[in-house]
Measured scan of single mutants.
Amino acid sequence: NKFNKEQQWATYEILNLPNLNEEQRKAFIDSLKDDPSQSANLLAEAKKLNDAQA
């Protein structure tokens, strides 16, 4: 299913963002699990935070 693929991709991407700390990473991944339909939005937020902390 589409959300499952998006969720897996977003999880992979978030795990590989270098500037997030473990707590932030875990929070994003927990949110992905809670609502896979928000995968794209959550990934965008994670990338923004990652860039802000660069």
Rank of each mutant, 00 (worst) to 15 (best):
I14G: 01
P18W: 05
S31K: 14
F3D: 15
Q7Y: 14
E45A: 14
Q7T: 07
E6I: 11
F3T: 14
R25A: 06
L42N: 02
A54W: 11
K26S: 11
I14L: 05
Q38D: 07
Q38R: 10
P18V: 07
A52H: 10
L20P: 00
A46Y: 02
P36V: 04
P36I: 04
N21Q: 11
A54D: 07
D35E: 07
Q53F: 10
D35L: 06
N50T: 01
K26T: 10
A54Q: 10
A44P: 01
K47D: 02
S39R: 05
L15R: 07
A54N: 10
L42K: 06
E23D: 12
N16V: 05
Y12D: 08
A44R: 10
L20T: 00
A54M: 09
K33P: 02
A46S: 02
A40P: 05
N50M: 01
L32W: 02
Q24F: 02
D34Y: 11
T11N: 05
Q8T: 08
A40K: 15
K5L: 03
A27R: 14
W9Y: 12
N16Y: 04
N1W: 00
K33N: 13
L42W: 10
Y12M: 08
F28R: 00
L15K: 07
N16W: 06
I29H: 03
N19M: 08
F28G: 00
N16H: 10
N41M: 13
N41D: 09
P36A: 07
N41S: 13
N41G: 08
E45I: 14
D30T: 13
A54P: 07
A46K: 00
L17V: 00
N50Q: 02
N16L: 10
F3K: 14
N19L: 05
D30L: 14
P36S: 04
D34K: 10
D51Q: 12
S31V: 09
D30P: 00
K47F: 11
L42Q: 04
K47E: 04
S37Y: 06
N16Q: 06
P18L: 04
L15N: 12
L43I: 05
N19Y: 14
Y12R: 06
E6S: 04
A10P: 01
L42Y: 11
N50A: 04
P36F: 05
I29G: 02
S31P: 02
T11L: 15
W9E: 13
Q53P: 04
K48E: 07
N16I: 07
L17A: 01
L49Q: 06
E45P: 00
E45G: 05
T11D: 02
L49F: 05
D35N: 12
N19F: 11
L32E: 00
K33E: 13
S39D: 02
N1I: 04
E22Q: 13
D34F: 12
P36N: 03
D34R: 12
K48L: 12
N19Q: 04
L43Q: 03
F28S: 01
L42H: 03
N19W: 13
K48N: 07
Q53S: 06
I14Q: 01
L42R: 07
F3V: 15
E23N: 12
Q7N: 03
Q24T: 04
